[in-house]
Amino acid sequence: MKVSVITFPGSNCDHDAMEVFAERQHKVSNVWHKDSDLQSPDLVILPGGFSYGDYLRCGSIAKFSPIMSEVSRFAEKGGLVLGICNGFQILTECGLLPGTLMMNKTLQFICQRQFIRLENAFTPFTAGLPKGMVLDIPIAHKEGNFFIDEDGLKALQDKDRIVFRYCDKDGNVTSEANPNGALDNIAGICNDKGNVLGMMPHPERAASEHLVSQDGLNIIRAIEGYFSI
């Protein structure tokens, strides 16, 4: 599998993502945001961090980076794009995903382990995993409070585009288990075709034996499975 990880000025999870895929013998390219060549990947990752210092709104300036028009073209052709944390914010700002990641309800930066429940097992990122599976994957953000208008939320629900919801360790989706005030406990959504996924939790931070959770590997293995068919 060929993976391209985009680095924007201020990205800080790009190397984590690259390492996780490189360790699993995938060909990983690091693509600078000013480049215009995506390096013919199977998967593009927009990593976490603080692109452009999160100035104005998170992700709002990164959407004008030269590489983003290539990312949009790649996504429109059906290429897999995974936006993690700041990457999710960039995907909503550039219109590849709907909604907005607003400031957390608590106004605090939240860095903690978090349980999320798999709601859609039919995306390339989750295929083969059991629906309802609970994953222990950390979050670290101040703007993760997913918001969308009523019609937009209904469209996400009706078309099964909510991929992950915040939950407790037993998989109960409750307001207590919602860390940031996100509407309908939304932690991750995909586009209509399912080839673009944005999620606030960091699977690349839960994919090494040295870390407390390896649950992020489920997502990485699902992507590998998608390409091996």
Partner: peptide, 8 residues
């Protein structure tokens, strides 16, 4: 284009 997010 940039200063306001039309969603919110």
């Amino acid at each position: 284009k940039l200063l306001a997010n039309p969603n919110t």
